[in-house]
Design a protein around this nucleic acid. Structure first.
Lengths: 365, 365
DNA sequence: CTGAAAGCGCTAACAT
DNA sequence: ATGTTAGCGCTTTCAG
């Protein structure tokens, strides 16, 4: 017991060498026991395992990764864990990652593109198998160029950049994507409102400049145009995806006397805020004004009246994001090698927040 | 250009050696410009940076960690990212981690203690600076013993196991903790109900056997006893923390004809389910039955009537969890070295879901 | 079935 | 200010 520092004296963690010595075998054997990827005599294995237990040995993932084994990690970058839109996607990612025996590194950007870029770098440093970017993105040119560069770097190292719910960076940029029919959902729910007789529909919320906002508004307008309903710029009021925004802006609009018979909130959270403003103003939903949202997150069922909205397969989106990046990518050589994009459907779910407009009711009778 | 494989031909990632060669310096210099922790001539730095850019070089975090630099990672283990209780804590952890320039590894257990143990191991392998366990735990003896063992292993390696919102494992187990006054909050809100004249209060939900449930029921009963209100076993109905449970069980209880004038839901989510059952049964809240929850998550403000509940400083809990583990731990040598426990307060927030019971109203007039 | 030894990419003394 | 070099802990040929 000369200078061996046998028991946790020097605070140093046990290593394979320690285990090997204690078990009287070589480090190669210890490795083989741990990875059970090579035949080892039962007796030897026994001894090695005992040694590991005795030393409280825990393999060092960094050393292992450095020696060439995948780190089994996927990174996900979202703007806020608390927002159910992201939380559900994160859940899908987490579950699929776990199913593939991988750990999930999550970063939140608070919507700041710079932080997003920085996090991609960080995950690249950690050699994540895939980096999943979730949610809409800004249109900024230099930002997209930066993103493209990162995508190339990542790809060169065998990792994948996954675009989840945001537009591709172009054919020549090696990314893989999973989207949902954003435009289609907006079209469908606007059409639903139109069918009920609404013509003055207020589009409320969503950061201007964000691809998500752009797509939702695009679907909305396409529906309007198809029915030949005139477009009134005053009826498009983007801003943010928060409940606070929905509440505040709706209050202002009401005060300003803007006329509309229905509100298409950019998402359910905004709808919740708008609903409160309407309630406080004594405006009944749906008798006086109809209200719809987007995403179909739990709050939609909690509101009274329950909210008619567009269902987005959030969790599935997350699952597919990791699947498309690490598992098959392209199952049986189907699709483009690196730039494949999967597209999931959306559909409206009708609840109790829509009714024909007062005027329409009158007109009809 | 003999066997140099100059440009990304061999798909191999660039390393410090490549950068050094291209810049005509040694690897030490490359390391020094990356870490900016040592003087380097401006011109040299310039050349090195250009080389890094040119090669698309990204440092390998594993190699760096192996070479002795902290991995700057904290792990958080929760049962579900979507549950706002955990999501808010996770947000606090994420933010504080980011503030300390650390990445956050998150794992979800779906409430399975075995997965929890497995994840602790995984994070230990990754040499996380701290592993944060969030939320109540089961009482099981062998499970706690396993946990204690992991805590020792982690501690021996200089990492910390943080218990967030769950009981300590004992004085001799090296952990650090952050709690909230769970019992006190339950006491306070029960007392609030009692003050309004309620005596038959139904406690609904929460996994039996979970420390969180135990503490909330303890506070509830202490309040009852202090007022000399008899305890009726039928009025304590644990089960789960889900909305579905709240809805289903409340329906059953109503059908069975259980008598009560107020409901203390184990958390706001359960309260939401119970509220729906009550609504469907035509029972008015709070005129016919009062309802309170716990946690004060957003849904409490979305319900109608808005829910009176107990506020828990969720995000702060998460922040402190990482702070107590990695930053100061014990600022200016205050408190126990390893087993310090921070306790945050809770308080009730009165909204619109409580009123005196019908009987009490009559009695009073 | 087991051992010896060569890295993996980076950092930190220790030289110069 | 910059170069040399010895590991960090593990996996993995290549030899027995």
């Amino acid at each position: 017991m000369s200078r061996q520092e046998s028991t946790a004296a020097g605070q140093r963690r046990a290593t394979v060498v320690d285990v090997a010595r204690l078990a009287g075998v070589s480090t190669a054997t210890v490795s083989r026991v741990m990875n059970r990827n090579y035949p080892v005599a039962a007796a030897t294995r026994e001894r090695v395992e005992a040694a590991m237990r005795g030393l409280g040995y825990v393999v060092n993932a960094h050393a292992r990764a450095l020696a060439g084994v995948s780190g089994r990690t996927v990174g996900i970058i979202i703007s806020d864990v608390v927002d159910p839109f992201y939380a559900y996607i994160a859940r899908g990612v987490e579950r699929e990652a776990a199913a593939g025996d991988r750990l999930c590194l999550v970063c939140t950007t608070q919507g700041d593109p710079q932080r997003e870029l920085a996090f991609i770098e960080l995950m690249h440093e950690r050699r994540a198998d895939a980096v999943i970017l979730v949610g809409g993105s800004v249109a900024d040119r230099t930002y997209r160029a930066e993103l493209a560069r990162r995508a190339h770097d990542l790809d060169a190292g065998g990792s994948k950049l996954v675009l989840c719910g945001r537009p591709s960076l172009g054919e020549d940029v090696p990314t893989v994507g999973v989207e949902y029919d954003n435009e289609g959902g907006a079209f469908a729910i606007t059409d639903h409102l139109l069918t009920q007789g609404h013509e003055r529909i207020l589009y409320l919320g969503g950061p201007p400049g964000l691809s998500t906002t752009r797509d939702r508004i695009a679907g909305h307008r396409r529906a309007l145009e198809l029915r030949g309903v005139a477009h009134d710029p005053d009826l498009v009021q983007p801003g943010a995806f928060s409940r606070a925004f929905g509440y505040r802006r709706m209050n202002e609009l009401l005060r300003e006397g803007l006329r509309f018979t229905a509100v298409f909130a950019a998402n359910d959270i905004v709808a919740a805020g708008a609903a409160q403003a309407l309630e406080e103003a004594g405006i009944g939903v749906p008798q006086d004004v109809s209200l719809v949202g987007y995403d179909d997150v739990p709050v939609a069922q909690e509101l009274r009246p329950r909210l008619t909205t567009v269902h987005v397969p959030l969790e599935e989106l997350g699952r597919q994001a990791v699947r498309v990046a690490v598992d098959g990518g392209d199952e049986d050589d189907w699709r483009a090698p690196t730039t494949g994009t999967l597209r999931l459907g959306t559909h409206i779910v009708v609840r109790d927040s829509v009714a024909p407009p007062r005027a329409a009711k009158r007109r009809r009778s």
